[in-house]
């Protein structure tokens, strides 16, 4: 049942039409989550007892950092699926994720810098957390560069999948960097097994913003996948039919 659905979903014409119908609903959901998260984070959450209002950067910094790692894993896993089963849509999901992941990594680094300056007194330190996140950005840029350097899409996808899979080692390093090495960066407050050490009024907007960023990823991913699909399937009959009905 699930396999049959996945098989149908991964057929290009079906994916194209269903993603077109999904996008407006996803946009609506994103805007609702964003509005709630921003209100909660900027207005109702109390100021931090140590960091004052500067801690509110958390509501863009942490979701962006989470997404930078989540998207990398999606990119690597779908790359592997494309590598093993030669599913076209998996290849497309993998390469379409790269620029979105890169922009979230960039956001995590920039907002982290803007948070570090008033709290640590410096824009940047070469410590484990910051450096491994910077390496993540270079991995994304490497994937994008490698893909565009190889003419044939399918060969390029295979090469990129291998690079992405090798780079997966960096993900646990980023996560545990604040525990393995001493760092200016604070330890995990939410993603740990013990009770999160953050006040509930601060935590809920953070989780809502994380949800909003996830939905944003879905939107940006669908948009990019559609473009990549059109690019690859230029001469196909189903695309011709869509053009005629427009």
């Amino acid at each position: 049942m699930i396999m049959r659905f996945l098989h149908k979903f991964s057929s290009p014409p079906y994916f194209y039409s269903i993603s077109g119908r999904l996008l407006p609903w996803l946009t609506l959901l994103f805007l609702a989550l964003l509005a709630y998260g921003l209100y909660g984070g900027l207005v109702t959450a109390p100021a931090d007892y140590q960091q004052g209002d500067s801690f509110r950067i958390i509501y863009v910094h942490v979701p962006a950092a989470w997404m930078s790692m989540f998207i990398y894993v999606v990119m690597a896993v779908s790359g592997a699926i494309g590598l093993i089963w030669r599913i076209k849509l998996a290849e497309i999901v993998s390469i379409s994720s790269a620029p979105i992941g890169a922009s979230f990594t960039l956001l995590a680094l920039i907002t982290g810098s803007l948070w570090g300056k008033p709290m640590w007194g410096t824009w940047w330190v070469w410590d484990a957390r910051l450096t491994s996140e910077l390496i993540l950005l270079f991995l994304y840029l490497g994937v994008i560069g490698l893909y565009s350097a190889i003419e044939d899409n399918r060969t390029a996808s295979r090469a990129v999948a291998i690079l992405a899979l090798v780079g997966v080692v960096n993900i646990p390093i980023i996560h545990y960097s604040v525990e393995w090495w001493s760092s200016l960066h604070q330890g995990p407050t939410v993603t740990k097994f013990a009770k999160p050490s953050i006040h509930i009024d601060m935590l809920i907007p953070l989780l809502v913003m994380a949800g909003a960023f996830k939905v944003y990823y879905a939107i940006a991913l669908l948009l990019r996948c559609r473009n990549e699909l059109v690019q690859r399937e230029q001469g196909s009959r189903w695309l011709g039919e869509i053009l005629e009905n427009k």
């Binding site: 950067i57 979105i100 956001l107 948070w115 939107i219 940006a220 948009l223 990019r224």
Partner: peptide, 25 residues
């Protein structure tokens, strides 16, 4: 609370980057 520059720049850059991320495709 005195952190206007850091907070609003963070939110502003995030807004611009995410907007470009959907407008461009």
């Amino acid at each position: 609370g005195g952190y206007a520059f850091y907070v609003w720049t963070s939110y502003g850059i995030a807004f611009v980057v995410m907007l470009i991320g959907v407008i461009k495709p």
